[in-house]
Design a protein around this nucleic acid. Sequence first.
DNA 1: GCGATACTTAAGCTCATGCTTCACCAACCG
DNA 2: CGGTTGGTGAAGCATGAGCTTAAGTATCGC
Lengths: 105, 105
Amino acid sequence: MFQALADPNRRLMVQRLCEGPASVSELAAPFEMTLSAVVQHLAVLEGAGLVRTQKIGRVRTCQLDTQALQAAERWISERRALWERRFDRLGAFLAEQDAKEGDGA
Amino acid sequence: MFQALADPNRRLMVQRLCEGPASVSELAAPFEMTLSAVVQHLAVLEGAGLVRTQKIGRVRTCQLDTQALQAAERWISERRALWERRFDRLGAFLAEQDAKEGDGA
DNA sequence: GCGATACTTAAGCTCATGCTTCACCAACCG
DNA sequence: CGGTTGGTGAAGCATGAGCTTAAGTATCGC
């Protein structure tokens, strides 16, 4: 998942797909690479559940699947919350210490 | 950034650091790898701005920096919002078409 | 001061990643 | 039907990521 988002080109593809579905060649157009390379990136994104594709006739259409994105977002926000809660507790603890010191001194 | 979070071991380190600061060897303890390898991972995380470290005496203490996490979270949620808004517009469009059809028929 | 501890640095090794080329198939278009 | 378009698949290559070993440096405790 994060692995899939690690590559800048793949992030650009995700970016592109945010603006709506696209065929493989449409998706490939802005890049300097071969169609082959793009398809390989696409496979990674699809493997990570970030995009879904369906083939109609000879053209494969790709669109974003936000569920995977949501999962990643959740992962991050959970860790962040965890840390920040801890940080708050520390703040409270220090404040308490200060209070005691102020009391004792 | 995503690059840094791409490696499962590094994600575990982030996970660990959520629960509070740790020295390098504490951070390394749960892993099978060498201290050296852990330090290298740490360097990546630090390079990505995910952790900050300071050395006191001979021990380096690491703690999470949530700002970078926040940035990643924002990136994701922006794309997701973009896509979902588009999706909603499409829904509205289709609903409108249906209404017209129902009207016409 | 001396040994243990807590890293640091450099070199090297292996395997995965990102890419290319080339041959190929399938479907659309005239 | 034949050529073009859109995509597929396999093979090969270059680079980089993740790891290890090994040797070195700075601090701490006695």
